[in-house]
């Protein structure tokens, strides 16, 4: 099971030499009720060149912040409501029951929405993905993992569509950490998300060949190895793994081995990781 990249000249981690010029557009990162990855999400966006406010959902409901002041809405990872009544479900209910009009208006603008892990589960329950024909209903489910427990491990992802999110990405290598990430949908839905090239990332082996549903490469039993999909209009991305948790070279699972191998052949040791590209793509969209 050695990590080979046949026919590829790839640096597994890329150096970002200087901090990019920040863009004026801002991101709103949701928090509250057990969401817990808001800080690292803010840090990664800042490194990519986008400022962000972390906003408690109650402060949005109270009108202290206005969603429409922002261009990117992020539902970060976490354990909102302790996964009670289904992961992401209770938080999605809170959004739908209190903020739906703002969210709908936000979606009509030239804005982006990103949901990672628990955020993806919230998007799925809100129907923001796949959102065929801008119909926001539940068409997919992120069911409990096949093994029935939360699992935290690094996975390899490859992009399966060329869109604003995946541009320039050869692979992502980052952790999953979820108990309910087992993607499922009906045959009709699957056909349509395939046809419309909405499957953004799939789980794969280290050599980027298909995981074919096999554990541990596909960590949760997801249909067609699906790790992330976009909305029908491409403006919304839901992704189970956590690229924001592995933004530095030293956060990669295998970095000590890579460092040693690079040192032996005299290659410079990078500081950033390939996972930054996803966030740089978001910033590029607004730039």
């Amino acid at each position: 099971m050695t990590s080979k990249h046949p026919g590829r000249k790839q640096t597994p981690a890329q150096e970002r030499t200087s901090a990019p010029e920040p863009i004026p557009e801002k991101a709103l990162i949701m928090s509250g009720f057990g969401i817990n990855s808001e800080m690292e999400t803010k840090v990664v966006l800042a490194r990519a060149g986008m400022g962000a406010d972390i906003v408690h959902i109650n402060d949005l409901i109270d009108g202290r912040f206005d969603l429409l002041d922002y261009r990117l809405l992020v539902f970060p990872g976490g354990f909102s409501y302790g996964d009670d009544t289904g992961a992401g479900n209770a938080y999605a209910n809170r959004v739908r029951n209190n903020l739906w009009r703002d969210v709908e208006e936000f979606l009509t603008g030239d804005n982006l929405v990103l949901g990672i892990c628990n955020g993806f589960q919230i998007l799925a329950n809100l129907g923001l993905v796949p959102a065929f024909d801008r119909q926001y209903k539940r068409d997919i489910a992120l069911m409990p993992n096949r093994k029935g427990v939360l699992e935290c491990r690094f996975v390899t992802l490859k992009p399966t569509a060329d869109n604003l999110w995946t541009r320039g990405i050869e692979q992502l290598y980052c952790p999953v950490a979820h108990g309910e990430g087992n993607f499922f949908c009906s045959r009709d839905t699957l056909d349509r998300i395939r046809r419309e090239k909405m499957i953004a990332f799939t789980y794969c082996r280290e050599d980027l060949s298909s995981a074919r549903g096999e554990y541990p490469w596909n960590p949760n039993g997801s249909l067609e190895d699906i790790a992330g999909i976009t909305s029908s209009d491409g403006k919304v991305l839901g992704l189970m793994p956590h690229p924001e948790r592995a933004m530095e070279f030293t956060s990669l699972y295998n970095w000590p081995l890579l460092r040693e191998q690079m040192k032996r052949v005299g290659k410079p040791i990078p500081s950033g990781s390939m996972n930054m590209q996803l966030f740089q793509n978001i910033v590029a969209f607004f730039r």
Binding site: M1, N36, E40, L150, E151, A246, S251, N254
Partner: peptide, 20 residues
């Protein structure tokens, strides 16, 4: 080790299991 999220907060450097 893998039932416990050891990557949240993004600070993972050397984790609970190591190597290939």
């Amino acid at each position: 080790s893998i039932q416990y999220d050891h990557a949240v907060q993004g600070g993972h450097v050397l984790g609970p299991v190591q190597g290939k």
